[in-house]
Structure formats: structure tokens, C-alpha cells
Design a protein around this nucleic acid. Structure first.
Lengths: 164, 164
DNA sequence: CCTAAATACTACGCACTCTAATCATCTCTA
DNA sequence: TAGAGATGATTAGAGTGCGTAGTATTTAGG
């Protein structure tokens, strides 16, 4: 512990004393591997969505709207922690595919509310099982206790990163 | 456990009996949250890389080359589990920034080998501490035992997804 | 040898992602 | 009640990321 530095209440070890599993360099670093895991899940999910001409992002927006229809664009951004500019393009393409439609809020004309079409609503019976399939592949052989702990750690990490 | 289905050796519960923490729908689903965690880490890392006009992907390729210089494009793809077409563009931009240069393999002229420039090599003393900073923010307050378990689960998930 | 298949990479089109700049609308205050 | 500032959303431009198709180059089979 000769070369540690103490900042606030967090002990930061020097790189040389990090054990192997927490080396920061890609592709061994945990950061890269978490990113890769998410990427591989996306690839698999995309395969399952291909027949419907949808993308994983469309799924995510649909989930928001199934929970509550007619949300403002900014509400969806907030819920998903996505950047506004990104959503504009995604919703454009969802509108082209007739999954949603935009409508101005009558009380505040700055706000555009996003509403499900019949097509968009009907997908609620089709898509969740596909998402579950991806989950089952990814977490095969991983116990519920382990999944619970990962879920917990992920939530804390997101909170750490939300306002660093 | 009335509505479970048994397929091979994996028990697949129906959606209705899933506990809250493993609901599949975004943004509550673990899949989305893992993706979000990776995304937030990337955003923070990008901020730290801005002064150097680099991106997280450049970091990743540099890590590969620091480990072994002069690798074939396909070796880098394999190590990073990335798609070939993606690497072409990234390496183009790295070449423009004078981080690497391409050279044909004299024994097999189909192969392009990627070599670090002096600039690319010198960044090895600068960038790893930045990556470590991101890690420290993300995993603040998370014990080493918890990190070890997450690392472990992530590896198993990647293996599950590699050839599904 | 000489052609067919395999290999390494590039080109292109579409989709996502980010930042910064812009536009429209609303709100608050002098 | 004008005008300044805040807010909601879009646009523009660069950089991933993926699949498909295409170009060299090498290897293998006859």
C-alpha cells in the first residue's frame, strides 16, 4: 500500500497495484467488457427485431409509451437519460414506420406529445417475449442472487455517474 | 411456480412472475440499465478525452497496439469483438490524427498492419490515468468483492452471447 | 499451371449518439 | 405590455456501429 493516494474518503490505488480483474485497459478493463456485453445483447435483440423492421431504440421508446401514452419528447428523454437530439431522429423514423404520431400540446405549443398508433400499441403483445429471450440467453447459468447483486451495483454506478 | 416452462435445463418463468428487478422493459430492465451504465461511462470518458481530440474508440484501439504493435486489422477486430467495417473508419480517422499508420504486410499483401506513431505511443503515459478516473467515479462506494462478482458475471454473459 | 474458393480489407447506406447552434414559444418582470 | 430570459424541440456535423456488396490477393483442387 506504499503508493496509494487518499482523496476525500476514497482510496485510489496506483495502476501497478491493481489486481488483474480491474485493469482499466481495453479489452480487459471492466468498463470495456460491460460495454461489450450491452453491445452483444443489442446485436442479438436486433436480430430478433429484424422481421418487424424495428431497432432496439424503437423498443425502448415503445416501452415508455406503453407505460404512459402521449408523453412530451422531453419526458421521454428524461426517463431514458438520452440526449434530445438523438430522440428527434429516432421519433422521425418511428413516425415514418407508423408506430407513433406527434401532436402539439394545445396548452403549450412548444411541447410535442408523442402518441402510439394502433400498430405501436399492438406490438406490446409481441415484443416483450423477444426481450425476455435475449435476457435468458445472456444470463443463462447465472443465479438469481448474482443477477440481483449485479442489478444493485449497476443502479449505484448509474447514480454515481448521473451527476459526477 | 405454476406457469413456468422447462426448456433443456433452463427454467423460463413467465413475465408475470418476474420480480421487479428483472422486468425486461426499458428503462427498468437490467439490459437497458447495463447499456446506460456503459453509455454514461463513455460520456464521462469522452469529456476527459476532449482536450486530446480523441474518442473512447481511439483509446480502445491504442490499448490493443500498446499491448502489441503492428497488428493486422483483423486481429484488432477479433480482440475487440468489433465488426470489420467499423474499424476501417476508426483507423482512417486515427491515421488523419497521426496516431497510427497503415502498412501492407510484405508476405501477404491482403493484410494491412497498423503501427503506432510516436504520438500514439506517447499517449500511453497520459491516457490510462484518465480511464482510471472514470472507473473510480463509476465504482465509488462499491466494494472490491462486489466488483469482482460483477466482473465475473459479465465474463459469463459475454461467453453466453458470443455464440448463442 | 489455372481456375475456384477463401481471406483481408474497403465502400456504402442506414441508424444511433453526441455537442453546439438555432428556432419557436412561453414566462416573468419592469 | 413590451422585452429579456427560460424552455422545448429541431437542425447540423462528426463519429460510431452494423450489414451487404465489392475489390484485391492468396490458397487449394484438378
Amino acid at each position: 500500500m506504499a503508493t496509494s493516494t487518499r482523496v476525500d474518503s476514497v482510496s485510489i490505488p496506483s495502476v501497478s497495484e491493481l489486481p488483474h480483474w480491474q485493469e482499466v485497459r481495453a479489452p480487459h478493463g471492466l468498463g470495456y467488457r460491460i460495454r461489450l456485453m450491452a453491445q452483444l445483447m443489442s446485436r442479438l435483440f436486433q436480430e430478433k427485431l429484424d422481421p418487424y423492421d424495428l431497432t432496439p431504440f424503437h423498443w425502448v421508446v415503445l416501452c415508455c409509451l406503453w407505460e404512459q401514452d402521449g408523453q412530451a419528447t422531453s419526458h421521454i428523454c428524461e426517463k431514458l437519460k438520452q440526449v434530445g437530439g438523438t430522440l428527434t431522429g429516432v421519433i422521425d423514423r418511428m413516425e415514418e414506420r407508423n408506430l407513433v404520431r406527434r401532436e402539439r400540446d394545445p396548452h403549450d405549443r412548444r411541447i410535442w406529445r408523442i402518441w402510439l398508433t394502433e400498430t405501436g400499441r399492438e406490438l406490446e403483445t409481441v415484443l416483450p417475449p423477444l426481450a425476455l429471450e435475449v435476457r435468458e440467453v445472456a444470463f443463462a447459468g447465472i443465479t438469481e442472487a448474482e443477477q440481483k447483486l449485479v442489478s444493485d451495483v449497476v443502479d449505484r454506478a448509474i447514480a454515481n455517474l448521473a451527476h459526477p
